[in-house]
Design a binder for these strands. Structure first.
Lengths: 226, 226
DNA sequence: TACCGCATAATTGTATACCTATTTCAAGAT
DNA sequence: ATCTTGAAATAGGTATACAATTATGCGGTA
């Protein structure tokens, strides 16, 4: 295992905590508390927060600290729209040049998703997002992967905000559908399957509300390792 | 003038310097030197470098400092491809709902570009990029604007690497062409004009490998013969 | 002379300290 | 009772100091 920097660890952990919806939108992210929880100084925490802010996962107001981003409804719809644009590009590229080894990877991931469906919620949420990131990775394009990765994370955030609890059966079957379309090297059908999947995902996003627990107790789970 | 933080100032300045090709790809960015130049401490410089790194404009190696990113040829082509994808989305959205006031903004910008054509190179380079960023802004989508902004910056970087000097007549006329297509509320034609413009831009970035960043590939030719 | 290893210098990663801005909360005025 | 006001407390912005890592230069040895 590569020895990564502390800032990196904080970054990865916070990111995962947000994606898994442990840290919910709007929640405050005080540098002191986070640093104490991870056993690092504010310096490393700030570094991580800057990066997360650049990705749109957290917001920092001038002299007022950071908190998990709270996309408005318009922003949410906008982000979904952009996601469709990017993922269309992904399946379009992939359907032309995907290899057997890559199918194996996709199917392996879907298997993980199936196994996780009935276990923990957070794991299931994360895996559903990672399926899309895996698709992007298979295109071999780093910039595309980065953007998809970012936007998928932000969609997790949106679902945390606007979907009701336990509505996150994130469509494993729809993932299989996409794989099958790719196998046929049929860009049209693949893009259609992807559109369908994303529309279904977006449809799950409706407004509800919940109150927020304490930052530290949540992070105690994530402080250990990346 | 809004009171912005020092880190923000450093970030903006470095970014502009890279986009205007004053800081060329591969150039080292020592925290000390930069901090001294701006009259700030390394802390603020690091903050800026982290953000630039997240955008792909600079690369940071472990314990080895940062330098202006040097996209490989594959990465360059890839970035252009992604840019086409994003800007297609921009003109598609815009051509449906653009307003007269927005045309005024676009035409005002083109005028600036014309005025700058014969003056300084850097200004012209920057304005050409900002035309595309302005287009993205007019869609009203912050995420889309951010991505376009990032990718346009990276394209500037690529042109710095792979285009020959003085080939940066960045097609003001093609910009006008795009505006006219938008005025007709004709998505097809607008997208076509954009494609044409981007292809022309990409064509200028030929593998004129004279700006050699990598020592090894040069020396590989010489290594054989003693 | 060319190569290897160690010591030193330079630069990054992280922590701490200080200063400034914001928030909070209580006391007084309206 | 509500609003204002202004200290005290809290938390973020920045600088500096220290630790860890990498780059560089020197002298010894074959």
């Amino acid at each position: 295992m590569t020895k990564s920097s502390r800032a990196e660890n904080v970054y990865l952990s916070l990111r995962r905590a947000i994606i898994e919806q442990a840290l919910r939108p709007g929640m405050k992210l005080p540098e002191d508390a986070i640093g104490e929880q991870f056993g690092v100084s504010r310096t490393s925490v700030r570094n991580a927060l800057v990066r997360l802010s650049a990705e749109g996962l957290v917001e920092v107001r001038n002299n007022r600290g950071a908190c998990v981003a709270e996309p408005t409804l318009e922003e949410a719809l906008d982000i979904f729209s952009l996601r469709r644009c990017l993922e269309r590009e992904v399946v379009d590229r992939l359907s032309r040049k995907i290899t057997p080894a890559q199918f194996a990877a996709l199917e392996g991931h879907v298997k993980l998703e199936r196994d996780a469906v009935d276990t923990s919620g957070p794991l299931s949420i994360r895996l559903a997002g990672e399926f899309h990131i895996l698709l992007a990775e298979l295109t071999g394009s780093k910039p595309l992967t980065r953007y998809v990765s970012e936007i998928v994370s932000r969609c997790s955030l949106i679902l945390a905000l606007y979907s009701r609890p336990h509505s996150d059966q994130c469509g494993v079957d729809e993932h299989v559908e996409i794989i099958q379309a790719l196998r046929q090297h049929n860009p049209e059908r693949a893009m259609h399957a992807m559109e369908h999947h994303l529309e279904a995902l977006e449809a799950r996003a409706q407004i509800s509300d919940q109150t927020e627990p304490d930052v530290r107790s949540i992070l105690s789970t994530y402080a250990q390792a990346g």
